[in-house]
């Protein structure tokens, strides 16, 4: 699979740009967190496209960003569940 480039993204409409990035991110996240992959991908897609491209080129940066997202997601889920007694 050829790497996703900024020019490939620029040629697509904004909605499709996120789709393209998500399709690249999802399998990488799935390998780390199979049960949370869809939601983590959704969270990471809130990041700027240019930064997402950098993350795709840098596995270490992506790894730490995924761990960050997992921590935020878990904290969110805990606060959701404690809110309703």
């Amino acid at each position: 699979q050829e790497p996703l480039t900024a020019s490939m993204l620029a040629a697509a409409p904004p909605q499709e740009q996120k789709q393209m990035l998500g399709e690249r991110l999802y399998p990488l996240i799935l390998a780390m967190h199979p049960s949370l992959a869809g939601k983590i991908t959704g969270m990471l897609l809130e990041i700027d496209n240019s930064e997402l491209l950098l993350l795709l080129e840098s596995p270490e940066s992506l790894h730490s960003k995924i761990e960050e997202a997992v921590a935020v997601l878990q904290a969110h889920q805990i606060s959701e569940s404690t809110h309703k007694s």
């Binding site: 789709q19 999802y26 969270m43 969110h76």
Partner: peptide
């Protein structure tokens, strides 16, 4: 209130990404 129950939006491979509200043309 349960305003943030649906956060975060879930990405599903092969399906159009609908995490953001569509911008009306």
């Amino acid at each position: 209130g349960s305003s943030s129950v649906n956060w975060p939006p879930e990405f599903r491979p092969g399906e159009p990404w609908k995490g953001y509200p569509n911008i009306d043309p």
